[in-house]
Design a protein around this nucleic acid. Sequence first.
DNA 1: ATAAATTTTCAATAATTTTTGAAAGTTTGA
DNA 2: TCAAACTTTCAAAAATTATTGAAAATTTAT
Lengths: 168, 168
Amino acid sequence: MELVEARQKFIETWGKLGSEWGINRTMAQVHALLLISHEALTTEEVMEALSISRGNANMTLRDLISWGLVEKQHKPGERKEYFFAEKDAWTIAKQVAQERKKRELDPLLKVLNELSEVKGNEKDPAYKTFKTSVKGINKLSANVNKTLETMIKAEENWFWGSILKIFK
Amino acid sequence: MELVEARQKFIETWGKLGSEWGINRTMAQVHALLLISHEALTTEEVMEALSISRGNANMTLRDLISWGLVEKQHKPGERKEYFFAEKDAWTIAKQVAQERKKRELDPLLKVLNELSEVKGNEKDPAYKTFKTSVKGINKLSANVNKTLETMIKAEENWFWGSILKIFK
DNA sequence: ATAAATTTTCAATAATTTTTGAAAGTTTGA
DNA sequence: TCAAACTTTCAAAAATTATTGAAAATTTAT
């Protein structure tokens, strides 16, 4: 396979994967493009490479920055902004995990904690099932949350550190 | 908070979470409804509870079955089908992980393996960056894959078994 | 202060995804 | 064999989500 074709396929595959996981396809594609670019690209170049509009490119790049996956660069003497992606797979994964935790897991836990406290008649099977199910999900979510926190905070932690080496 | 209100909120929250993770909102809501129902429900009851059409309810329930999260039940002497959800949070999580692995991770790995083998000029920075990035993602994905396989196959495995107890 | 270069915004439009509902299909019991 | 009970299908419609593009805002150099 030729590099040009392979690049195309990577962008397409990454975009598809993103959309299966609730990430806008274009955003995943822009990320893919930057991942396989050895130097930082301008908005113009991103627009060109993926045939997307200026508005779309701009918003998408800002989103990627807010996810901590891309950063702006400035070249001396140049006015325009360049965009560059973190390339290390482990760092990307950590960043995505951290962001999703903040955006989704933390709010979920807040709701589950509330719902775990609903009062009712212990004899009522509807009440019992609700409570048991919600508590079960709450507990698992809380454990995932705690683990992510530990992992993110202290990769040096002797225990998690050695587990995580499996993935690197 | 009243049980009726709490149930409503749980269904809404689970639906939102699903859609953030690329799962159709209605499907997540039907799942939520069954999760907090102490007995199996008919298509009719699901339609009623969530105000959705027969076609939608039918397709969604079939999908949930294909994800291994819901099963059909038959009551003696009754003609219609009843649907019941697995309630244990850990079993649900395992099931979802296994399904997503099969549907998404395995196909991804196939592509990444292909792309890792693209030939080109080692002096070309575009080629070098492509190769390095793709290989990095490939390696991480392969490790995640292997770990999931191990986890799914042998929960009894002394090593993973003890790690997984953290989550249960 | 001016204007060229660049980035951002956002209402309108387009594309995609989901849902509906009625018709077709299937199963079961009499 | 018939028909009632129930399930499945799928083309059309609705809802949602993403994209465009031109105007407004901002930045920078002179």
